[in-house]
């Protein structure tokens, strides 16, 4: 066996990457086109469609809403998810097995069903304001990721370290903040980033929960495409892509992507 990969393997891998990357290349190309309609390859180079994003107030508004929802929703999910992950790991023996599964359920349910269920229970059922409904929906959407990633971090945490601190006179709640949390910091950061990206890019749940006057960026992109076929939508997609890539680069630089794969 040679230690170099077989040429066919390289070719297949290259094809897979091409298949994955080509649509993105096309979107980037289309975004740079000088034409008033979506086209590839771009005809003439221009950044005017990027400028156009900010000229359209709906885009400006939804970018802000999306960031607000993603940020607040992620924080709320951390607030619920960190104690949940802690309890699930700390009392793994005492707690029933299905409890851990419960927190992963929203991932298993088709997102469209999840979104519809939220619409029925929040907006239609109880008349929760649109922004609040979006926030709750996104919190629930990202909660499983938060619980999973922080659980992975806690799984390698030796709880006798916590007991050592308690035996030395540190009260349990204080011990959580001074001993447990600093040792799963990497997991918390990773969970934050993963949840933030998931929320920022979500369509299915937002589709049901957005309403008059309040929308998120991905939903606004959909709405825009239905009415206009200009390259603005391509350029805003590129913007969203780069936001995501930027976040991923930060993770890669600080923790390594393998961390997310845990």
């Amino acid at each position: 066996m040679s230690d170099r990969p077989h040429p066919i393997l390289i070719a297949v891998a290259a094809l897979v990457y091409l298949f994955l990357m080509l649509p993105l290349v096309i979107v980037v190309g289309a975004a740079l086109s000088d034409t008033t309609y979506l086209t590839f390859p771009p005809q003439g180079l221009s950044l005017r469609w990027f400028e156009n994003i900010f000229a359209i107030s709906a885009f400006r508004r939804t970018i802000v809403t999306s960031l607000q929802i993603a940020f607040t929703g992620t924080l709320l999910a951390l607030l619920i998810g960190i104690p949940a992950a802690y309890a699930l790991n700390r009392f793994r023996v005492e707690l029933p097995k299905w409890l851990g599964t419960l927190f992963v359920l929203p991932i298993l349910v088709p997102e469209i069903v999840f979104g519809f269920a939220l619409l029925k229970s929040l907006t239609v059922g109880t008349g929760v304001p649109i922004f609040a409904a979006l926030l709750i929906g996104h919190t629930l959407l990202v909660l499983p990721y938060v619980v999973r990633v922080i659980s992975a971090s806690l799984a390698s945490f030796d709880f006798s370290i916590e007991e050592a601190a308690i035996s030395l006179g540190s009260a349990p709640v204080k011990t959580f903040f001074t001993i447990v949390l600093p040792n799963v910091r990497a997991g918390v950061i990773a969970a934050f980033i993963l949840a933030f990206i998931t929320s920022l890019n979500d369509v299915s749940v937002s589709l049901f929960l957005t309403g008059p006057g309040i929308s998120t960026l991905p939903i606004q992109i959909l709405a825009h495409v239905e009415q206009f076929f200009d390259p603005t939508v391509a350029s805003v997609s590129v913007l969203l892509m780069f936001l995501t890539v930027a976040v991923m680069v930060v993770v890669e630089r600080t923790l390594g992507l393998t961390f997310l794969a845990k």
């Binding site: 030796d158 601190a165 006179g169």
Partner: peptide
């Protein structure tokens, strides 16, 4: 009495030092 008020020194098998 809760454990943090018992004033007992503990030495663990896996050391349980605070890594940070």
């Amino acid at each position: 009495l809760p454990p943090h008020k018992r004033d007992i020194g503990l030495v663990f098998q896996n050391y349980a030092l605070f890594p940070h």
